[in-house]
Design a protein around this nucleic acid. Structure first.
Length: 308
DNA sequence: CGCATATCCTGACCGC
DNA sequence: TGCGGTCAGGATATGC
C-alpha cells in the first residue's frame, strides 16, 4: 500500500521525466478514478489536453502535477494505484484506468514515445483537475523538482496536515496537538489532518520502534515520548525511501507496495507469529479499525485503559 | 466540535 | 469446480 515513501518515489520519478512535457491526448477507460471531477470524464480529458507540466509536488500521500495554466492534476494512489511511464507500444495493463499522452519539448528526451498511465485495481485512488490556492499559513505547500518550494496547493489538500518529512512541519505544535487529543495514539497517527503520510504499515513500524502500544491514550504521552514517536516515524520513512528509491533513476515510475523494503525490513507489520527482531517474542495481531495492528506483546505492552 | 464508524472497491484466498 | 465469506485499508460521509 502506497504511503508517504512510496508516493515520494513516484514524485521523484515523475519530476525527473515529465517536467516540461505537454499532456494529451487523454483517455479515461473507467469513470471511477476521475469521480472527483464533477464535470465528468470527457471534460477531464478535454481540459488536460495541451497543458504543460511545470512541477511535481507532494504533501503526505497526495501528489500533483502543477500546470502552466494555474491548475493541477491531483493524484491519490489509494490502496493499489500506480503511475507508470510506459512506452506507447506496451500492451494495456489489466487495470489501466487513465491514459495520458505526453509530448516532450525535445525529441531526444529519454521519455519520448512514452505515456503516463494510471493503473488501479481497486480504484480507491484517482485523478482530478484542481485549482491551486495559497497555503493558509503562507509557508510553502511542498517540495517540487530540484527541491523548489511550491507556494500553492490543490484546494482539496488544504485540510491535509504537513507530513513528517516536510521541512516546514511545526513539530512542537504537532506534539501539543497530539497530546491534546482524546484518542489512541495509532488513530491519531492515521489522522491526516494531524500529520499526513502515515498509513497502517508505517504506523505499526513506528510504534514498534518507539515501544508504544497502538491503544496508548494520546493524553498520556509525555512530550519526550511523543517526540520519540515522531522521530521513529521519520526514521522508518527515511529508511523506506532509501530502499524504495533505488530504482527511481530508471525510466519507470512504479508503486505497488511490494518493493524489497516490504519483504526484508518490516519488524512487525504482517509478521504475526514471527519473532520480534528486538526480543524474540512472537508478534501479535489485533483487529483494529476494520484492519490489523501488529505489535510485540513484550516491547509494546497493552495499556490498562487503552483507547482502541 | 471531537471522535468513532460505515462505506467504497476488486481480487486473492480459504473452507466446504 | 464453484460458491460464499473474509480480508486488504485511505479518505470521506455520516452519526453520536
Amino acid at each position: 500500500m502506497p504511503e508517504l515513501p512510496e508516493v515520494e518515489v513516484v514524485r521523484r520519478g515523475l519530476a525527473r521525466w515529465v517536467l516540461g512535457a505537454r499532456l494529451g491526448p487523454v483517455e479515461v477507460l473507467h469513470p471511477r478514478p476521475v469521480r472527483r471531477h464533477e464535470a465528468g470524464p470527457l471534460d477531464f480529458a478535454g481540459r488536460l489536453a495541451g497543458v504543460r507540466v511545470t512541477d511535481v509536488v507532494r504533501r503526505g500521500k497526495f501528489l500533483w502535477l502543477a500546470l502552466d495554466d494555474g491548475d493541477a492534476v491531483m493524484a491519490h494512489l489509494g490502496m493499489s494505484g500506480q503511475l507508470l511511464l510506459q512506452p506507447r507500444s506496451t500492451p494495456d495493463e489489466r487495470h489501466l484506468r487513465v491514459r495520458i499522452g505526453l509530448q516532450f519539448p525535445a525529441d531526444d528526451s529519454a521519455a519520448s514515445g512514452r505515456e503516463l498511465r494510471f493503473v488501479d485495481q481497486r480504484m480507491f485512488g484517482g485523478l482530478s483537475l484542481e485549482k491551486l490556492v495559497p497555503t493558509p499559513d503562507g509557508l510553502p505547500a511542498g517540495l517540487g523538482a530540484g527541491g523548489r518550494a511550491e507556494p500553492l496547493l490543490p484546494a482539496p489538500v488544504l485540510h491535509i496536515a504537513r507530513d513528517p518529512l516536510d521541512p516546514d512541519l511545526d513539530e512542537r505544535a504537532l506534539i501539543e496537538r497530539l497530546r491534546s487529543r482524546r484518542t489512541g495514539v495509532k488513530r491519531a497517527l492515521l489522522d491526516q489532518t494531524l500529520v499526513s503520510g502515515v498509513g497502517n504499515i508505517y504506523a505499526d513500524e513506528a510504534l514498534w520502534r518507539a515501544r508504544l502500544h497502538f491503544a496508548r491514550p494520546t493524553d498520556q504521552l509525555t512530550r519526550p515520548a511523543a517526540r520519540r514517536l515522531l522521530d521513529a516515524v521519520r526514521e522508518v520513512m527515511r529508511e523506506a525511501l532509501a530502499q524504495g528509491g533505488t530504482s527511481f533513476d530508471a525510466l519507470y515510475v512504479n508503486v505497488n507496495g511490494e518493493s524489497g523494503y516490504f519483504d526484508r525490513s518490516l519488524a512487525v507489520y504482517g509478521q504475526e507469529g514471527r519473532p520480534c527482531p528486538r526480543c524474540g517474542t512472537p508478534v501479535r495481531r489485533d483487529a483494529f479499525m476494520n484492519r490489523s495492528s501488529f505489535t510485540c506483546p513484550h516491547c509494546q505492552p497493552r495499556p490498562r485503559q487503552g483507547r482502541w
